[in-house]
Design a protein around this nucleic acid. Structure first.
Lengths: 205, 205
DNA sequence: GTAAAGAAAGTAACTAGTTAGTGCGTTGTT
DNA sequence: AACAACGCACTAACTAGTTACTTTCTTTAC
């Protein structure tokens, strides 16, 4: 049974897991081949080398989160509801896809040298920033949002308050002496995050 | 010239740099020895093995940030000023010590298995959480802070909005198509962060 | 229809270089 | 002399990448 596409896809999925688990430096090409039930030679055949494979994994991770975001259709909701939905989505996505966070961390450890080579990333995010910009404008028109908020700063803040909690869940649970991943703790954090963003953006909370 | 303490200290400093630059998996013991102008044999003599060396580096990084925090003496300031000072301090510390962030990221990639072995970390942080708890109480008494805010959630949020920006400065600069490390960008972010926290905590912003 | 040719998919074993960790001897200090 | 600090040179295991080969599928010629 030969299937080039399926093998390629299995390698990519395996690479995503391995890179997310151990980072670029700690990941082992042999391990990726095993996980993918493929041969190491196939990895080099389809992806050239380890770094290129990593680049494609990271690119794909960014495409995935932005694709998911675009299904939100925030345009059809009142501004306040749309903003809350975005905060909830971001939180849920990090929670369900912690490998996204690990990959981004790993890419930043390497000063984003792989993403620098990518071309499709820039336009992907321009659309996203525009979407949040439009949402902010709409909220101001509706009289519910403060004017003058920078959509990039808001984006970063929405991401930050979820991302930091999830990425540092292990040291955080030790340092703060509570299980940050307990269901009640997660619920509490999500509500705190929504309150943080609402107080930041809305005219009257 | 023989000096056990100095050699040990040079190794620790070199290890901190190397681990911060490449993570636990990517760091090379030979490189640490070279940087420290010591011999690899000395590393094993003083620290046992690579993992133990890493554990001590991470522990020391946590002790350093908490030690710096304790010089703030927030008790002697009005609550609002104290809170703003804490946000500024956190931001400045991350900016001046980006290796702290990389070490914490690396430790979380390994599910905090080194920090779990550490004993002095817990009490270090209990004091810190108490300090912020006291600050919140004082702000409520002064009539400037909302009551009922969880000091742990506030701590996490103050850290998050700075940490995320700094740790993801490389991918962030590509994705948002602006130089996030330009002096004006840094100043803008700090002010945005202060506003975020003030709106979250204060009764009237 | 079918057989030969060729291309693509897949594998095992290997190479060259790297890496954490050590054995053992040397040098300096008290 | 005794002990601690130090350093060279080694090893056993590992690791990214390659070579040379087999198997399977597709295309083309008749």
């Amino acid at each position: 049974m030969r299937d080039a596409d399926a093998t390629r896809a299995r390698i990519l999925a395996a690479a995503k897991k391995e890179f997310a688990k151990r980072g670029l430096g700690g990941a082992r090409v042999d391990e990726i081949a095993d996980r993918a039930k493929a041969n190491k030679r196939m990895i080099y055949h389809y992806f050239g080398n380890k770094e290129d494979l990593f680049r494609i994994v990271v690119e794909e991770a960014y495409v995935d989160i932005r694709t998911a975001e675009q299904t939100l259709e925030l345009e059809h909701l009142p501004a306040r509801e749309a903003l809350e939905k975005l905060v909830r989505f971001t939180w849920d996505y990090y929670l369900k896809n912690p490998e996204f966070i690990t990959l981004v961390n790993s890419e930043n450890l390497h000063k984003a040298r792989h993403l620098k080579k990518s071309e499709k990333i820039e336009q992907l995010f321009r659309r996203f920033v525009d979407m949040v910009g439009d949402l902010l404008d709409r909220g101001v028109e509706e009289g519910v949002f403060r004017p003058g908020i920078d959509p990039v700063q808001l984006n970063i803040t929405i991401a930050a308050i979820g991302y930091y909690y999830i990425t540092n869940r292990f040291t955080g649970s030790i340092v703060f002496q509570r299980d940050l991943m307990a269901p009640e703790a997660l619920q509490e954090r999500l509500e705190f995050n929504i309150e943080t963003i609402m107080r930041l953006v809305c005219v009257s909370p």
